[in-house]
Design a protein around this nucleic acid. Sequence first.
DNA 1: CTTGCACCTCACGTAGCGTCAGGCTGTACC
DNA 2: GGTACAGCCTGACGCTACGTGAGGTGCAAG
Lengths: 239, 239
Amino acid sequence: MSDDETGTTRRWRVGELAEAAGLTVRALHHYEHLGLLVPSRTEANHRFYDRGDVERLYRIRALRELGLSLPEIAQTLRAAPGALRDALRDHLARAEQELTRITELRDRLRHLCDRAETSVDASALLGAVEAMSRVEHHIAARQAAGRPERGFEDRWRALGVDLRACMDDGEPPSSTRARELARRVQARLHAFTGGDQATLEALARLRRDAPPQELAGWTPALFRYLDGALAALEDEVEP
Amino acid sequence: MSDDETGTTRRWRVGELAEAAGLTVRALHHYEHLGLLVPSRTEANHRFYDRGDVERLYRIRALRELGLSLPEIAQTLRAAPGALRDALRDHLARAEQELTRITELRDRLRHLCDRAETSVDASALLGAVEAMSRVEHHIAARQAAGRPERGFEDRWRALGVDLRACMDDGEPPSSTRARELARRVQARLHAFTGGDQATLEALARLRRDAPPQELAGWTPALFRYLDGALAALEDEVEP
DNA sequence: CTTGCACCTCACGTAGCGTCAGGCTGTACC
DNA sequence: GGTACAGCCTGACGCTACGTGAGGTGCAAG
């Protein structure tokens, strides 16, 4: 059943093919420019695509919809054997990274939108946004500087457990035990921020305005309790 | 505690500020070009940024990290009142859309990668990718054409239930009852594809090579059973 | 012969900068 | 005072995957 027998030596003009494939003429021009899909030409220099070109186009489209870049597609279509599998795996990894990135982003945005609902003025909201950003940058900078973060979370978790026990025992934030724990938190904070005032303020703002729901065993209620104890500490210094 | 008293009338040069904010000099040039952050100049025409500029920059950075575009940031910083809240809500909606998109993408990629593990040659894999794309395009085209899709899934589900009952009753795929159901499936497929051969083939390929885990009550086992019954139908026509 | 449509080839625009290229400024050292 | 070097300046092109014209050609119908 050759093309000749069935009369299927069909040729497509750009417009037809674009229509059929759900693309635009310009896109086909672009693919040709990249050497990704190079059609033949008529005497009048008009492009025409044969059956092979069309099949190639559908593959291109399929890989495009998976999110591969045009150069990547060109490469996997050139070196077909195991390259496709590797390309898909690489791309899967990238997609999963993107996914976690966007998920975090969405969570932050949700949090901020929730807060915005409950009538907070814009500058406070901006402040919260900025504080988040500042603290994250600080953490990133520490990691980039090669600071060993071993036991980083564990220590916070341990402090959280102690403070929660104190709170659950009904001790007021101004109690000696609570203030002692607050002092330890302050020391930890100082070590973490390297004494940077801006980061310390940003952290305070986050605790007050946008405490994370659950971070190393800390809850919003615990953060509030801590703030009470820290306030008691300050009163102690300058009564 | 004014700037004069504390001597904190500090001014930053571009390089310093870029370093401090974790950006590049070029980015700051760009922000100035957009009118987003316009510093003062020294006599020698060098940029310098004061405390207010720095604060503005940190807000810009924070909003950028939330994924807002630079024009959007410019706008929300100009018209601060409720604009920020609206912008965040809009952006949240976009983020959630992106999230579902990437999630679907990841699922497809995972599926394909799984199949690639079990040593399938590249062209078959490409074929599966292409078939997915083709079927999706067909569905999109139908929806764009305004085809009423009411009861679309329900009918497939009903057919699936009948076929599963048949399979669970131990009837062989070649039994009269199974072939009758296969005939009804064929009719549905024909109605769905509008008789388009390419889409029919793509669907057959998907059933065989990459059956979805769960779609309107159909499982891979059920798809295999259906293929058996369809094969029995064909044998019946030309024995 | 004109109308009209599909086609052709430039070529600029998009977002957010990266990355030269070529020239000026400011400071430190000799 | 000269000079070396870091840091600053202003263009201007590059990147993705095309969109969107502008200005000209090919071909069939009226």
